[in-house]
Design a protein around this nucleic acid. Structure first.
Length: 644
RNA sequence: GCUGUUGUAGCUCAGUGGUAGAGCACUUCCUUGGUAAGGAAGAGGUCGUGAGUUCAAUCCUCAUCAACAGCUCCA
């Protein structure tokens, strides 16, 4: 009997029933057979050695397929486990999945230390084992047999995993001397794995639960060719050069001081320019969009947060209250601006005609973040949100929400952020007690967010358990240089705080109604936004943001007077920069300005003085020829306009 | 917060059980140079902090603080 196999190009071939993926690949071409790693059968990834029993549409997977890569890395995790067990008999295994870049395996080594030396030893054992060409063999096992095997092996983690599985659906994979509980699929044999790098060791809680034992997580990555590993490592090096913590230091944008306290950034003069330019950009955009700027204090009475619910939810995990010396009153450093804004709303009666009211504030907030979580400017304990709260009628929610989406997208477009993910952050349905408010209001809010996103044609990813405790969110996620994902812009629909603060407006029916609140921050926090921006442009800021836009470089001290005149006249035109009148050669001054990533260098020497000109050199592009200062300024002014 | 690694000059890093070194940066002098590092001299460190072992600790031990990687958390 034959089975009909449809290929991705639409063609259909017949093969004997029980044909294997490897045989199909071989029948297509020898070249394909050599590089095929797995096969997709009706959308499911299978081993190449698994017989196909009925008609199917298939795709041979190679290193060029995402699933091909993950199969490859999954098999590499097994190879790692084999090597580790050979060197550490009795080691217990958790899980070992493929990830975006490579794989990890969680293992329990007992009391044995595991550092760089041990890592290197396991890596070389892996290389030896890979050369053995061991085939990955799949085997169906009964639950009882599976339990018996790992009981014998004394591996509590695998036993726990098996107990959660359904009998009849359990498979083992064996390669060489190592057998693992595994759904598969795997590559045909270990010889495909030519380049191996175990990258780092870290702790990870068993099953991601803080209350469980912490296992040792070993990260690694493998490739079919040595050259690809080298390219990957090179790419990593390049990414590290873009790290905002490194550039922030080199370009003198911000700093931290142990004396000030961890997670409390100090903005240096150049970083401050950057930050203030962004603020100005947002202020302008917000005025255009009908926001009213407000200012509120950095602390607020504890009762404010008791009312908002923040105290109950985060009181223990916040900076603790500040007490007045005489009256013993309690104040909290504000972790949020919304309660203050609610009180501004309440300063007078509001009519339905007044709504929406949009209160905007660059509000600096303080949150106690776990010490291990602090990370450069992306996760800090004191930061400034480009916060605003929109108080509107229920019938205005969607329209207002959409306007905010447009504002977020304006920011991203203006700064060239193209690779963002719009994430709809929903409640965790398993843990409803984590949230405040009634079900129907949550459902309504979640629906409104999804509808607004759809209307703007945003493709969204819904993630459960990521909502704020008072409402669902639309979060805009962007990745940093090292591939870590951060939330920047956020928009939240909130029915809870208006209730808690008893906010009201008088409707056209002369009755009291409750407004809806939209919390929103297009940048998110200035700190995190700047961090991601630095990494995104590798420190080469667009002209309108660059802390130093120009550097005037006299060829020798003889031209310092002319250079100073040039510099002063640029300064009068609000062009920022430096005059490098050091006793250095021009090559040196150029190098320093290039290293500092100054967009324009204006070089002046004998010729320029004589002709009343400046020689332009563009960062990263070299000599642009000479022009008169007026000509340069005219062109510069056009180039440095902030986006609209 | 947890696990692991690290902490030496402003920065990047070397080094040793007998109280320290390089390059860059900084200061001064020489040089006045045309598109990515001119030359010389000088100054600069309680070796993260505290305790212990030792005749002697930057080095060994412990504690503590901070940074880094990951986990957990994130209003």
């Amino acid at each position: 009997m034959n089975v009909k196999i449809s290929l991705p190009d639409g063609s259909v071939r017949e093969y004997p029933q029980g044909v294997k993926g490897s045989e199909i690949a071989a029948s297509i071409s020898e070249g394909l057979a050599r590089v095929s790693l797995a096969i997709e059968v009706n959308g499911e990834v299978w081993d190449l050695a698994r017989p196909i029993l009925s008609d199917a549409s298939i795709k041979i997977l190679t290193w060029n397929d995402k699933t091909g890569k993950s199969t490859f890395w999954h098999s590499s995790a097994h190879l790692f486990a084999e090597a580790l067990e050979a060197l550490y008999p009795g080691v217990k295994f958790g899980i070992g999945p493929p990830i975006d870049n490579g794989f990890y395996y969680d293992v329990d080594l007992g009391e044995q230390p595991f550092g760089d030396e041990e890592l290197a030893a396991v890596e070389s054992r892996m290389k030896e084992l890979a050369k053995k060409d061991s085939a990955f063999q799949r085997k169906d096992v009964s639950k009882a047999d599976a339990l018996a095997y790992f009981t014998e092996k004394n591996d509590p983690y695998k036993i726990e995993l098996i107990n959660d599985l359904e009998d009849g659906k359990i498979t083992f994979y064996t390669q060489g001397n190592f057998t693992d509980l595994c759904r598969g699929p795997h590559i045909p044999n270990t010889s495909f794995i030519k380049a191996i790098k175990l990258t780092n060791v870290a702790g990870a809680y068993w099953r991601g639960n803080e209350k469980n034992k912490m296992l040792t997580r070993v990260y690694g990555i493998t490739f079919p060719k040595q050259k690809e590993l080298e390219e990957y490592l090179h790419l990593l090096e390049e990414a590290k050069k873009r790290d905002h913590r490194k550039l922030g230091k080199e370009l003198e944008l911000f700093a931290f001081s142990e004396k000030v306290g961890m997670g409390l950034p100090l903005w240096l003069p150049k970083g401050t320019i950057l930050r203030e330019r962004l603020e100005q950009f947002m202020r302008k955009a917000q005025i255009r969009a009908g926001y009213d700027p407000v200012v509120t204090p950095h602390i607020g009475s504890k009762s404010l947060y008791v009312t908002s619910g923040h105290y109950e939810k985060y009181g223990k995990d916040s900076f603790q209250p500040i007490h007045t010396p005489d009256e013993g009153e309690e104040f909290l450093l504000k972790p949020m601006n919304c309660p203050h804004h609610c009180e501004i709303y309440k300063t007078k009666p509001r009519s339905y005609r007044d709504l929406p009211i949009r209160l905007a504030e660059f509000g600096t907030v303080y949150r106690y973040e776990q010490s291990g979580e602090l990370h450069g400017l992306t996760r800090v304990r004191g930061f400034t949100q480009d916060d605003a709260h929109i108080f509107c009628r229920p019938d205005q929610v969607k329209e207002e929400f959409i306007k905010v989406i447009d504002l977020v997208l304006l920011v991203f477009r203006s700064l060239g952020f193209e690779n963002y993910t719009a994430q709809v952050s929903l409640r965790d349905p398993e843990n409803k007690q984590k949230y405040i408010g009634e079900d129907h209001l949550w459902d309504k809010a979640e629906q409104e967010i999804q509808e607004a996103a759809n209307e703007r044609g945003l493709s969204t990813v819904a993630v459960k358990g990521e909502a704020a405790f008072y409402g669902p969110k639309l979060d805009f996620m962007v990745k940093d240089a090292l591939g870590r994902s951060w939330q920047l812009g956020t928009i939240q629909v909130d029915y809870q705080l208006p209730q808690r603060f008893e906010l009201e407006y008088v409707g056209s029916d002369n009755q009291r109604h409750r407004p809806v609140m939209i919390h929103r921050a297009p940048f998110g926090s200035l700190e995190r936004f700047v961090a991601v921006l630095i990494e995104h442009c590798a420190g080469n800021f667009p002209l309108w943001l660059a802390p130093d836009q120009i550097a005037v470089l006299p060829i020798s001290e003889r031209f310092n007077d002319y250079a100073k005149r040039v510099y002063e006249s640029l300064k009068e035109q609000d062009i920022r920069g430096i005059l490098d009148d050091r006793n250095e050669k021009i090559g040196r001054k150029i190098r320093d300005a290039e290293t500092q990533k100054v967009p324009y260098m204006l070089i002046v020497g004998e010729r320029e003085v004589a002709e009343e000109k400046v020689a332009i050199r563009k960062h990263g592009q070299g000599d642009q020829g000479s022009v008169s200062l007026d000509e340069f300024v005219a062109k510069f002014k056009i180039d440095c306009a902030p986006p609209n």
